[in-house]
């Protein structure tokens, strides 16, 4: 909020500073889990990696693409609100949400498929890490979709304009972070 920005000691709005600090803690959360995975992957003799065919790399690649696209539409939505173009703003936020939902649909298909192939949460160490890491990420995607829905509804009610879009920016930062986490998880779980 522009009025708020003028009031803060750093010149950065509470919302933006808050979301950055929040993301720092999120990095440590995923960082802890990913390090655990890396340590056991390199240190445990019992982390059997399923063959790549079983992992369904093409589908996951497509999913990565869906999520990255949704990050791009998020950027476009922010650009639109900065020039007061409400129509484009609503359309791009909608597309971002759509990208997130598409990701979740594909993910649930994948889960179902893998579970039937015998990769389960308790089947072996790899399965445990696979579902824990991606599951936590899925929770973050769901949180992000809810956040964006909130942005969309408040936006349609005229909460944001060219001078007042701190929250859109904060939501965008969060969404890019969720995207980034996936971009790290995808290679370490599917490709390596």
């Amino acid at each position: 909020m522009s009025t708020q920005v003028a009031e803060t000691s750093t010149g950065i709005s509470h919302a933006k500073l808050g979301i950055w600090t929040f993301l720092a803690s999120e990095i440590m959360l995923f960082g802890g889990l990913v390090s655990a995975y890396v340590i056991l992957r390199s240190g445990s003799a019992h982390m059997a990696i399923p063959p790549r065919e079983m992992m369904g790399v093409p589908l996951a690649t497509f999913n990565t693409f869906a999520l990255i696209t949704s990050s791009v539409t998020m950027v476009l939505a922010l650009a639109a609100i900065k020039v007061n173009d409400m129509k484009r703003f609503a359309r791009f936020i909608g597309m971002t949400i759509g990208g997130g939902i598409l990701f979740l649909c594909i993910k649930s298909y994948e889960y179902n498929h893998k579970w039937h192939e015998g990769i389960t949460l308790s089947s072996n160490l790899f399965g445990s890490f696979y579902y824990t890491l991606t599951g936590l990420h899925v929770i973050h995607v769901i949180g992000g979709i809810l956040l964006l829905l909130y942005i969309l509804v408040t936006g349609l009610n005229g909460a944001y304009d060219a001078h007042n879009h701190e929250r859109v920016e904060a939501a965008g930062l969060y969404w890019h972070f969720v995207d980034l986490v996936w971009v790290i998880l995808f290679p370490i779980l599917y490709l390596l």
Binding site: M28, L29, S128
Partner: peptide, 23 residues
């Protein structure tokens, strides 16, 4: 910065206990 790492650890411990994982 430190607490999320324990959160991760506690989550894994929880899963080991209730979901049959073996972290």
């Amino acid at each position: 910065l430190a607490f999320p790492v324990l959160e991760a650890g506690a989550l894994l411990q929880l899963l080991d206990r209730v979901a049959g994982t073996s972290f």
